[in-house]
């Protein structure tokens, strides 16, 4: 029977690598412009196990860059993204937390995640992810600086150490003069997602994918 996973196995990956990434646990903190697009790239790439956190609902103003659709407006983002992702791969396994992460509850989340994607909006929450999980062996992919329309080639991956990466230009803050738009936000999200593929690929030590 043809399924999304069988197509990935037949056409894009060696079976053992696909099985490997299907068991990698991905945590995503925030389901806005970065989080929704990171998840899209990872689900399409074959990742299956997710733990996602967001307290917010989908609004009209999100649609310029976030993966949601008109009929998602008013839904909780964690519910809306799960429904969209199931349309790509119905076999995904998603733990949804409709909560606001804080220093009081962060210890309840991502305890077995292999990767944590920081996709929050506010600086204090971005910091909290690295400060809380930074001294573990988890791979942490952070976002910083993707507002505006200019300097698009400045969006980059900076490796902080073997398991911490920051993606963005580290300068362009979102504010009233510098709003977020799809091209730079998606570029940032795509580079973030690419790190999960690159690191898992390297761990698996494959030299060539079978096409």
């Amino acid at each position: 029977m043809v399924s999304f996973n069988s197509i990935l196995a037949d056409k894009y990956y060696k079976q053992n690598y696909l099985e490997y990434i299907q068991n990698i646990k991905i945590g995503i903190a925030g389901m806005g412009g970065i989080g929704s697009n990171v998840m899209n790239a990872l689900v399409r790439s074959g990742f299956c196990k997710f733990e996602i956190i967001d307290y917010d609902i989908v609004e009209y103003s999100n649609l310029n860059r976030q993966l949601y659709f008109l009929d998602d407006i008013g839904k909780y983002k964690v519910d809306a993204i799960f429904d969209i992702m199931k349309k790509i791969n119905p076999m995904i396994d998603v733990i949804k937390h409709n909560v606001m992460l804080s220093s009081n509850n962060i210890q309840n989340y991502f305890s077995d995640a292999d990767f944590i994607f920081e996709a929050f909006d506010k600086v204090e929450y971005k910091k909290m992810i690295l400060e809380h999980f930074g001294n573990t062996t988890k791979n942490i992919i952070l976002s910083s600086g993707m507002a505006g329309l200019l300097n698009n080639n400045e969006i980059k991956i900076r490796k902080i150490n073997s398991c911490h990466y920051v993606v963005g230009d580290e300068i362009s803050a979102v504010n009233h003069e510098n709003m977020p738009y799809a091209p730079r936000v998606l570029a940032c999200a795509s580079l973030m997602a690419s790190i999960a593929l690159e690191l898992t690929y390297k761990v698996f030590n494959l030299t060539n994918m079978d096409f």
Partner: peptide, 10 residues
């Protein structure tokens, strides 16, 4: 020393 500077937006 690694200094990670966060700016808002995500």
């Amino acid at each position: 020393l690694e200094i990670v500077r966060f700016v808002g937006g995500g």
